[in-house]
């Protein structure tokens, strides 16, 4: 039965964290906090996807904002202009993610580190420019009156309802991310970062591994974007800037690269910290930026790795792994 026990140990913290997230609206009924809670969960989905590229494969992409935006626009335009059911629109969104993954994966095969960051920035700017200037995407005003998701006439049109809808998606994506993190794909992604040449002579096509990472990440990003469009009900191109792409990467770095818990922690910190700092007055954005910069410089391995180290010490003192779940709870309370 040892196997069973270790399984429980592994799943329990995840379960505790999901419970904490699902109970969040019970304690904070305020619509404002609910909106930020939704935002945080969407960030979680994007961060989990981005982790395959930045965290595991070690490629610095600064184009995630555009991926998120393209997902949002695909779903929003289909449902407003053609009247496609939002659920059906998820299929083109997935296709969109798949296409972006292939498209962004291609330059990653040819250009080196910083150059690749520049290509992705260019991608983000091209997309944002087109979204802002094309008439068909609604120019600068964006898309309005996007219908919400609905099942048999039950509309997910309030913050609370949307919260649980996004939560359901989050659960699905967490399961996918965890399964990938347990599989040979995680090893392949990390091997790409550590030593692509050695991976190649081990019989693995490095290009296809890289493109797989990008495809996965873009699909996560696009679906999150589509959820965002139907949750927020209107979208403007000014949301999907390079700054947004940067905050996605910052989430990963703050949490700790290549680490599942780090993604979740980072997403919640980036979503909630600015709101908490609002009480500090007009300079809260500056304080936030300084904190983020210091976090990146002082904890290059992520805050999560430091928490883990101290938790590890506690476990070694014989307190059991349930402590891991405790962190999850604290985090959502942020």
């Amino acid at each position: 039965m040892k196997n069973y026990e270790s399984l429980v140990k592994k799943i329990f913290p995840v379960f505790a964290m999901l419970l904490a997230i699902s109970l969040f609206p019970v304690f904070l009924k305020n619509n404002y906090y609910l909106t930020i809670g939704c935002q945080a969960m969407l960030y979680c989905i994007v961060a989990l996807g981005l982790n395959f590229i930045v965290g595991m494969s070690g490629m610095m992409t600064l184009g995630t904002g555009a991926v998120y935006g393209l997902g949002a626009y695909t779903s929003a335009l289909l449902s407003t202009k053609l009247g496609v059911n939002p659920w059906l629109a998820l299929i083109p969104v997935l296709v969109m993610g798949w296409l972006i993954g292939k498209g962004l994966g291609f330059p990653s095969l040819r250009v080196q580190f910083v150059y690749f960051s520049l290509v992705t920035i260019a991608f983000n700017e091209i997309v944002r420019n087109l979204l802002t200037n094309l008439e068909f995407t609604g120019s600068g005003t964006g898309v309005r009156n996007i219908p919400p998701y609905s099942i048999f006439g039950f509309e997910f049109n309030t913050q609370l309802r949307s919260y649980y809808l996004i939560f359901a998606f989050l659960v699905v994506f967490i399961i996918i991310a965890l399964r990938i993190a347990k599989s040979k794909w995680r090893r392949a992604f990390i091997a790409v970062k550590d030593n692509p040449e050695a991976l190649e002579v081990s019989g693995i096509n490095v290009s296809s591994v890289k493109i797989t990472a990008f495809t996965l990440s873009s699909i996560f990003g696009c679906v999150a974007g589509a959820l965002y469009a139907h949750f927020n009900r209107y979208i403007t191109p000014s949301t999907f800037t390079t700054d947004l792409s940067i905050s996605f990467v910052v989430m990963l770095i703050i949490g700790g690269l290549g680490n599942f818990w780090g993604c979740i922690l980072g997403a919640y910190v980036v979503a909630f910290l600015p709101q908490l700092l609002r009480s500090a007055g007009t300079s809260y954005k500056l304080i936030y930026a300084v904190l983020m910069m210091l976090a990146v410089i002082l904890f290059p391995n992520g805050i999560m790795s430091d928490i883990r180290r101290s938790v590890g010490k506690l476990i070694n003192n014989g307190k059991g792994f349930s402590k891991g779940g405790g962190i999850g709870e604290n985090r959502t309370g942020n």
Binding site: M60, D243, I253, T282, S283, L286, A289, M292, M293, V296
Partner: peptide, 24 residues
């Protein structure tokens, strides 16, 4: 001497700090 990833993000964050400072 830090990793390239951290260096990129750190300069990006520096930009945001300066930006907020300028607004202030």
């Amino acid at each position: 001497n830090s990793t390239r990833l951290i260096a990129v993000v750190a300069t990006v964050m520096l930009g945001q700090v300066i930006n907020e400072g300028v607004i202030l």
